[in-house]
Structures are given as C-alpha cells and as structure tokens.
Nucleic acid binder design. Structure first.
Lengths: 168, 168
DNA sequence: AGCCTGAATTGGAAATTCCAACCGAGACCC
DNA sequence: GGGTCTCGGTTGGAATTTCCAATTCAGGCT
C-alpha cells in the first residue's frame, strides 16, 4: 500500500527537498516499501536465494505485470539491486539481488514467520525456519537490551519518539 | 492481502477440517491476517492503547466502512477482542482490545519500526521508539540463540522447514 | 529471413478502496 | 410522545488496484 502522501521520486530517484519527506510513522514508511501485494513475498523469495524474473514468477504465481511493477519499485526503494547476467546462448537478462537494506528485511520476515508459528500455525508444520547460518542452531527473534540480552516480549513497549504527534 | 486460498471461516469462526488449513508459508499466513490495507495500522494504534472505533477512525483517517471491515476481520482472526463499554450518559458501545495473539504482533511492528529507522528514516526523527516498559531503556529487535543472546543479523538464515515444498 | 524464448506491455474484467451521504439505536429535551 | 443530536455502522457509486490472457518485443538461434 502506498500512502496518500506518496513519495514519488522525481524521475531520477534522487530526492531533492530535505524536509517533509513522507510520513513520519516508521511502520507507514516501511509499508510504503513492502506493503503492496506481493512485495514482501518477492523479498522472501530473494532471502531464499531467488533472483531471476522467472524464478519469482514461477514461485509466486503472480502475474507478470505486477511482478514487473513490484521489482521496479523494490529496486527504486533500494531494497533490490538490478544486475545483468547472461546465460550461455541467451541474451542478456536482469537479475535482482538484495541490498543491505533488503537483507535487513529478514527481521520483518522473521517476525512474521515467528508470529505465524506461535499464533497461527499451519497444522502440517513449518515451511520456514530461522537458523544460525554457521551452526544451524535454531534462532528466534526477540527484543534485546543494550547488552544484547533478550528480554521478555511483555516488557517491550512502543512509545512516542521525538517526531511523534498526536495524529502520527 | 488475502490469499487465493482464502481461509474463509465457516460462519462460526471455528475450523472443522484439520487438513489443508490454508497456505503453508508462515509469511503468507501472517499476511492473510494483517496484510490488508489498514490492518496493521489498526494493530499499531491498539499497541499504543487505542481501543475505540472513533479513536481508530480519527487517528488513521481511514473511511468507516473499511475500518468496520478490518476490525471485524481482526476480531475473527483472534487478534482483537470486542468488548462492550458504556460511557456515562451514552449508550453501550464496542471497544477493541489486543489479545495475546495481537500483542504478539508487536514483534512485527517492532521489526518494521527498526527497519524504517535503519534504512528509510524520516529526516525529522522517529515517531516511535521501543523501550523496556519498566526501566525505559531502549530496546532493539534481534535474532537470539537458545540462551537468549543476540547474534549478528548477518548470521541468521531463513531455511526450509519440515513442511516446505519447492513452490511454497 | 523465420523461429523460439522469455520479459514486458496491453486491454478488459474483477476485486478492493475511497468518499460522501444516509441509517438507526439510544440519550436527551420539551 | 415527538423532535433532535450523536456516533457506530451501512450503502451506493466512482476511482484505483489487481487479475488474467493475449500480444508485443528484443535478442539468439538455425
């Protein structure tokens, strides 16, 4: 979903004004990037290593017109990076790879996976797990204090920050 | 967003069959609950303590028809709980409160807040922060190992689980 | 040239969202 | 009782978004 105060970059993608740069609420800002239908699922696939148009299309079952649109928007938002590749005997094509920003969305994906596991599980078991890439040990997502120690979910509170206003 | 394999509960909300209970992917399952426009923002408001129809309407600026729809769906999904309340000299009205499952979505909200802060910040500062409710100390979201110790984001990997298939 | 493949585009149907006007139950007043 | 106000909620129709299938287009191949 895009906000009414849409952040339409002026053609080049570079921003001009430094003030009033879209909505204040971080959740709304994040949803402006990944809130449209299919966007986060493209990221999910990318986190699993997929990178080609055909891979996304076959995996997601989304129609090609919206896939084209979502890929372009994710590239414009800096979540994906477009690269050229060439398969032997084929013309040059584009592949899409997560940027640092895109890899950061693993936190969002992980949160959804964990919530689903906990509160809305599929009876047949989990389709994804989060593990330590090096050791294979299971990981979970938690709020941690400054020392990196997990605190109970119940002690975390979302409170207004400096830029808060009564109406978000 | 709702999946094509929509999980339309048969009137009562209770499920009958135990097999093939919607999509396997936890992210898709979670998006089926909070992926529609406005849904997560209702939850965000609820996490901030709002509970009444008028509070959501005024805060979100969403039209009342979709707000009615989203509140009903969140109640049906078990994220919100509908209660009756009566203000002095007014008729009985309904308020909407987070359930345990709804409070669990703080993880998803927190992940989006943190990603926004890190990769897509509002130049004027943050509108929300996550803190320890008791001490007020800032918290962040991280993947932790079984001992509750945070690991670097880069060591977390999303891998196929028991119910994985090639096409999700 | 002609054919094949795969990404991208187009056109029209379907679904979703938006907006504004309207409804109706209860509270209040006379 | 009748009138009016308030506020969740509903309704009707326009606008936007998504869906689906067919088509186009660029490049490599024979």
């Amino acid at each position: 979903m895009q906000t009414q105060t849409e952040t339409a970059s002026p053609a080049g993608g570079a921003r001009v004004s430094g003030l009033d740069d879209g909505p204040r609420c971080q959740i709304v800002r994040t949803l402006d990037v990944i809130g449209e239908k299919w966007s986060l699922l493209v990221v999910r696939d990318a986190l699993r290593g997929r990178s080609r148009f055909s891979e996304f299309r076959d995996s997601l079952g989304a129609s090609t017109d919206i896939l084209t649109d979502r890929l372009a928007k994710l590239v414009a938002a800096g979540v994906l990076e477009k690269r050229a590749y060439r398969e032997a005997g084929s013309r040059e094509r584009s592949s899409y790879h997560l940027t640092e920003s895109g890899r950061g969305l693993a936190l969002v994906a992980g949160a959804m996976i964990q919530w689903g596991d906990t509160f809305n599980p599929y009876p047949g078991g989990r389709s994804s797990r989060v593990v330590d890439a090096a050791t294979g040990a299971p990981l979970r997502l938690a709020f941690v204090d400054e020392s990196g120690q997990a605190v109970p979910d119940s002690s975390a509170a979302i409170v207004p920050g400096p830029a808060a206003r009564t109406t978000w």
